[in-house]
């Protein structure tokens, strides 16, 4: 990962100046992605729409997964706590099945390739070395870009996130100064699931 932290303020200023001249106005955000973060905490929450009363949060049915990514050189250790619903086994029905089970484990990546993982059946991508996030003007609309935040509707979710994704009405909000504090993404999957993703960054 390239280290820009010393030159960061000057680079950002230059990039915003460049954007003002007609280039990609969001290149400063891409530059922030290249910073050397010591930890990123990723929280993914899926809320399942089943005609639930909108004001009755006790009835909300969701699964939340948290991934603590700690960087050290070319390695990244992912400590995860994920939730999954258990199935009915045989003919034994217990209302406690409505409470998600949690699985906690570790996955180690080197240069973006999974090298080891807790044997618990939780699925983790084998390879996280693609382009990933890409902030390009053409991927967004209704953009609000200020000194400390970026808010927009995402018109091309797959290109923005670097992964094929089937969804509607994706929105993004990023808080930053010289580096990202967090990026919050929300969308509705084609299956009707409400997805909320939060990235919390620590330099």
């Amino acid at each position: 990962m390239k280290k820009w932290f010393i030159m960061l303020p000057a680079v950002c200023a230059a990039l915003f100046a460049f954007a003002a001249c007609g280039g990609n106005t969001l290149d400063p955000l891409n530059a922030m992605l290249d910073l050397d973060y010591s930890q990123i905490v990723l929280t993914v929450k899926n809320t399942f729409a089943e005609d639930l009363p909108s004001t009755d949060f006790d009835e909300e049915m969701s699964l939340t997964s948290v991934y603590e990514i700690t960087y050290a050189g070319d390695a990244a250790n992912v400590h995860y706590v994920v939730e999954r619903f258990a199935k009915i086994d045989g003919m034994v029905v217990d209302e406690s099945l409505a409470v998600p089970e949690t699985y906690e484990g570790e996955a180690l990546f080197e240069k973006g390739v999974l090298v080891s993982k807790t044997d618990d059946g939780v699925s983790i991508p084998d390879n996280i070395s693609g382009i990933g996030f890409d902030f390009q003007d053409k991927y967004f609309k209704n953009v609000q870009l200020e000194d400390m935040y970026f808010i927009a509707d995402v018109s091309d979710p797959g290109a923005f996130m670097g992964s094929r994704i089937n969804c509607t009405d994706m929105k993004v909000k990023a808080i930053f100064l010289d580096s990202f504090y967090n990026i919050i993404i929300s969308y509705t999957s084609n299956e009707g699931t409400a997805v909320d993703i939060t990235y919390d960054f620590t330099l």
């Binding site: 990723l42 993914v44 991934y67 960087y71 990546f109 990933g132 996030f133 992964s163 993703i197």
Partner: peptide, 16 residues
């Protein structure tokens, strides 16, 4: 849930 997590992790590809 698994699918959303996969997309979210892979979006960090540049940081891995």
């Amino acid at each position: 849930s698994e699918s959303a997590s996969k997309v979210a992790l892979e979006s960090l590809g540049g940081l891995f």
